[in-house]
Nucleic acid binder design. Structure first.
Length: 118
DNA sequence: CCTATGACGCGTG
DNA sequence: CCACGCGCCATAG
């Protein structure tokens, strides 16, 4: 049965794929919108990934806080219940965040293309 | 139908 | 380092 009442079925599928990848992000790791888009074969549709995150509010098993932009900046923190939730949740997982910037980003970064498809 | 906007990314100057 | 522009595509007005 359909959980979402989305007009476009194809779009619904895209969202599902995004969520599937996000759910696979390991505890204490982060990835970027672009990396997810690229992994799904839509490298230039990173904006849609962000849109999918926006729609993932009601999905508790989708760790949207582990998705940041390519620089490791918490650009989406404003969309959480509080601007600090994203940073706090990352902090709890051992991801240091200073001034919206994920510290040691290169090391924390989790690339689905590289980590999954081996 | 058309324009503006965006939790993005990449190229240029 | 900063400012802009463009591509991408769904949504809102």
């Amino acid at each position: 049965m359909r959980i979402c009442t989305v007009k476009s079925a194809a779009n619904n599928d895209f969202f599902e794929q995004v969520y599937a990848v996000v759910r696979l992000i390991p505890h204490g790791r982060v990835t970027s919108y672009g990396a997810i888009a690229k992994y799904l074969g839509a490298a230039r549709s990173s904006r849609m990934v962000g849109w999918a995150m926006n729609a993932s509010h009601s999905l508790p098993d989708v760790p949207a806080h582990r998705v940041v932009n390519r620089q490791g900046l918490l650009t989406g923190k404003m969309h959480f219940s509080t601007p600090f939730e994203m940073q706090e949740r990352l902090k709890q997982e051992g991801v240091e965040v200073v001034n919206d910037q994920v510290q040691d980003f290169e090391h924390k970064f989790w690339d689905p293309q590289r980590e999954l498809e081996l």
